[in-house]
Nucleic acid binder design. Structure first.
Length: 596
RNA sequence: CGGGGCGUGGCGCAGCCAGGUAGCGCGCAUCGUUCGGGACGAUGAGGUCGGAGGUUCAAAUCCUCUCGCCCCGACCA
């Protein structure tokens, strides 16, 4: 048992000034974590115990699908990273340094290279496949902007798994197993994950899914169909193509629009809806300017544009870059442009008689029609999906949600195997590339997501599966009889298999109860002069209000039963797949920031 | 990287504009009284005011530079 009087860490009465989101605030106040630098945290005993419990849930689900735990290093020679090309292609988020012999080294930000290299060395035959490994390991990514406590850190703990299959079909089966294992793990941690399609990445992935905890504290926008048949990260989400406008194309004309430099201004000035305008957005690809033409009411989705252009590092172009290319900011038009790369969103292809800039100050063109009036180098879907757009599968109005990405899964196929020459001998005796999958769960981020979904104004409400201790024994008063009773209760609870935190501090009842609420251990037992005289123990569940006195002789059995019931409620067993949005709505209703 | 904010005992803050003995609340220590939802009284410890340089008789305060942290955006397997 741990006594609060000797716990390393102190709770804070006031919120830390720099914490804005609930999980950050409560985990610092409750002595779970302390910041060391931007995006770098120490995990105090309470926090570390919690992380280890989360790990254990994940570990059990990984073991259950036959995945084998190992441990790979944090510091790597750059060699393998050079062979896959990532030493050069990754940006400053990959920390590079030299050792004493001037060899290039990196800090692990993931372990595909290392895991696959191991597989290549250890797997020789199809008889050894499929096989999979995982570990819990520190990752370091020099993020440009850490934020939200454990939500986005530079140093973090990740459970990453790597699967090795003999064929894409075999990988498909493995992949489904892992998705199922992930959903089970998250449910056991008290999170109903929303599984959505995600960006497979510019690095050769063929298929990818993300697992989201829905809460307004998240950073990702998720597009979901209320029928549950579609869900995708906004980076890859699509909607049904717009209905073609079969209006008769009218002759193009120039109109004076002095001072009307924005879509809203032009539309207002001409008395038309923004859907009837053509918005020009300019990106710099690193080599040239890309002129993006999109319907005025839509927004450009940069992730889609990046893929369409096959340009990993696009950014909005600066005004001087536009002027240098002969474009007039506010009045730019694709009409009459030859030198510039033009990307047209499919919304423009389907529209008729749009208003576009005239490439001169103070004037616009009306009745612009594509492709009659201008050319495109690319026509693609590069628009953000908006709430209300029709589901690509069933046409139902789509909804937008905010989520924390707590896990992801990727099919890499033979992409890395080709680079690292990772092969096995097939039944026919020929070398074949190992077919790889990669699966991540951010353990520290998952802890933050759990707190976001499980807290109230008084503190954290840990799911029983991951709480740092099972039971919080609060001793009120320092009388010998009370101390002894609390001690005995704690010992009996431990003998029954529960972990116990005892608040034996000489503090007032209010301080102790408030700290108990803050720390969020699911079951609280109070021992005081009053309960000792009644030969009883008061039991209170953290997630509900009633307090109940139970006879001492029955207290332990009762606590065990309550704890078992809490664990049973965190059942992993429910249909797996793309989850219905009702569950998403339920998850959101837990979020006090949004109200209910 | 762009924009904004903030660095003053362990935590939360005031003082800065209008330079002149570094303050408040909480916490901490000791003693006493309290003792079921952040008790009360008394006494006490604890701060090179993020750092460097400058202006000045005098700098937490004014100027310059710099480091760090937070938020928004950019970015993000």
């Amino acid at each position: 048992m741990q006594r609060l009087s000797s716990l390393f860490g102190r709770t804070l009465r006031e919120d830390p000034a720099d914490a804005t989101i609930a999980s950050h605030r409560l985990m610092v106040r409750g002595a779970f974590i302390r910041p060391l630098g931007a995006g770098i945290f120490s995990y105090l005993p309470l926090g570390w115990r919690t992380l280890r419990r989360i790990e254990q849930v994940v570990r059990e689900e990984m073991d259950a699908v036959g995945c084998q735990e190992l441990l790979m290093p944090v510091v790597h020679p750059s060699t393998l990273w050079e062979r896959t090309g990532r030493f050069a292609s990754l940006g400053p988020e990959l920390v590079r340094f030299k050792d004493r012999a001037e060899r290039n080294m990196v800090l692990a930000l993931t372990h595909e290279e290392i895991a696959l290299d191991l597989a290549a060395r250890l797997v020789g035959s199809y008889r050894q496949l499929p096989v999979s490994v995982y570990h819990f390991q520190t990752k370091f990514r020099d993020e440009p902007r850490p934020r939200g406590g454990l939500l986005r850190t530079r140093e973090f703990t990740m459970k990453d798994a790597y699967t090795f299959d003999p064929s894409p079909e075999s990988l498909d089966a493995t992949y489904r197993q892992f998705v199922t294992a992930y959903v089970r793990a998250f449910r056991r941690c008290g999170i109903e994950p929303l599984v959505v399609e995600s960006d497979a990445g510019a690095m050769g992935g063929s298929d990818a899914d993300e697992f989201h905890a829905l809460t307004s504290a998240g950073e990702d926008t998720i597009v979901v169909c209320p029928t549950g048949d579609y869900g995708a990260n906004q980076e890859v989400a699509t909607t049904q193509p717009p209905e073609p406008d079969d209006a008769e194309p009218l002759p193009m004309e120039k109109v004076e629009t002095p001072g009307q430099e924005t879509i809203a201004a032009v539309a207002g000035y001409l008395g038309i809806p923004t859907q009837r305008t053509l918005k020009a957005v300019f990106y710099w690809t690193g080599e040239q300017i890309a002129f993006v033409a999109i319907r005025g009411d839509l927004d450009v989705n940069e992730a889609k544009l990046r893929r369409a252009l096959r340009a990993p590092d696009i950014r909005l172009a600066a005004d001087q870059e536009l002027t240098a290319a002969g474009l007039v900011p506010g009045y730019a038009s694709p009409v009459g442009l030859d030198e510039v790369l033009v990307v047209v969103d499919r919304s423009v292809e389907c529209a008729a008689n749009l208003v576009a800039g005239a490439n001169m100050p103070g004037a616009h063109l009306v009745n612009v029609n594509f492709p009659r009036d201008f050319n495109a180098d690319l026509v693609e879907d590069i628009a953000d999906v908006a709430a209300g757009d029709p589901c690509p599968r069933c046409g139902t109005a789509l909804e937008l949600r905010t989520g924390i990405e707590i896990g992801n899964t990727f099919k890499f196929g033979a992409y890395y195997s080709g680079k690292l020459n990772a092969t096995y001998l097939s039944e026919g005796g020929s070398p074949q590339p190992i077919v790889m999958g990669s699966y991540g769960i951010g353990i520290t981020r998952l802890a933050a997501a759990i707190v976001e979904l499980h807290h109230d104004e008084d503190g954290i409400i840990w799911p029983a599966s991951v709480a740092p201790y099972n039971v919080h024994v609060v001793q009120l008063g320092q009388a010998d009889e009370v101390t002894q009773a609390a001690e005995r209760l704690a010992q009996d609870l431990e003998a029954a298999g529960l972990s116990v935190l005892v608040d034996d501090r000489d503090e007032s009842a209010g301080v102790k109860f408030n700290d108990a609420d803050l720390l969020g251990i699911p079951i609280r037992c109070t021992v005081s002069r009053r309960t000792v005289r009644a030969d009883a123990v008061e039991i209170k569940m953290r997630h509900q209000d009633p307090r109940e006195q139970v006879a001492s002789a029955e207290a332990v059995a009762r606590v065990v039963a309550e704890h078992d019931a809490l664990l049973a409620a965190l059942s992993p067993d429910a249909p797996v797949g793309l989850l219905p949005v009702e569950t998403a709505a339920m998850a959101n209703s837990h979020d006090p920031l949004k109200g209910t």
